[in-house]
Write a protein that binds this DNA or RNA. Sequence first.
DNA 1: TTTAGTGCAAAAATTTTGCACATAG
DNA 2: CTATGTGCAAAATTTTTGCACTAAA
Lengths: 152, 152
Amino acid sequence: MKTDALTGIAGILRKNTYKMTPQRRAVLEVITGSHDHLTPQAIYRRVQKKYPAIGLVTIYRTLEILADLNLVCRVHAEDNCRSYLMRRPNGHHHHMVCKSCGEVIDITGCNLDELEQRLSRETGFKIDGHLLEFNGHCRACLDRGENDNEQR
Amino acid sequence: MKTDALTGIAGILRKNTYKMTPQRRAVLEVITGSHDHLTPQAIYRRVQKKYPAIGLVTIYRTLEILADLNLVCRVHAEDNCRSYLMRRPNGHHHHMVCKSCGEVIDITGCNLDELEQRLSRETGFKIDGHLLEFNGHCRACLDRGENDNEQR
DNA sequence: TTTAGTGCAAAAATTTTGCACATAG
DNA sequence: CTATGTGCAAAATTTTTGCACTAAA
């Protein structure tokens, strides 16, 4: 990730009385550098390579803050419900998650507004938001004939 | 739940070399009797009232089987990712989950086919399925002005 | 009967908390 | 400087496993 982006994030953190520390920078670099969703453990292992002294607790605390600030989003995979991903700066979006390699592709334009309105009207529900995720297998994994490997 | 439904489920279990035990019956009664999604713990507590000797392990094992057989489905709530709900017999459907009381309303007719096809075409992804959940507050909770209570 | 299921206790894995020390701004 | 952040160790949860005993079909 370019310094620019991390600098921007540092600003967002500061604006919310959080500080940019080397640990948080390392976590951000790992998340940003991956096109997959990563569990706290997976992030921990990767960050450790560059920053062996970091504690797993710091990963948890950092993820909580980043999620609160909407800088990362959570993916609800079938097995692993707590997996994180950098939020790309294109507003409201959803994910398409590869079951083989975990790659995540962003989706925009889900136009569920009409459905939402209908549901609200019919049930009296006040809908705040929705979770939409597609799963399947990405081009690359299909080509490699991989339908398995779960090393996340 | 009527005996009929449980008898039907017993048949499905038997067909898959599983047996219908009083423990499983109790778990099914609890899940069927709730319009909310319930965590293993919550199910455990409720089943215990009628069946004090049951072990939490049995709840986990039962849920795994029922989920495998597609008799219950899992709800991915914001906080609690492992929550279960009886699957109603109307085929493919999604959920609308109340953040206050946990009530779940089934949704049919999500017509995401067009979107799915477009995504497949554009990315080469082979889409197996999707997860769609709406969240917000149900009519009853809105009327009572409840925006909080998380007793799940 | 025979195969599958149960409870218990223990282990493993995940997540949270308290606290003294360290450090970003 | 001072508020916030960090690591550690320990606690609290949650989930899984091994094993002897029980019970459904």
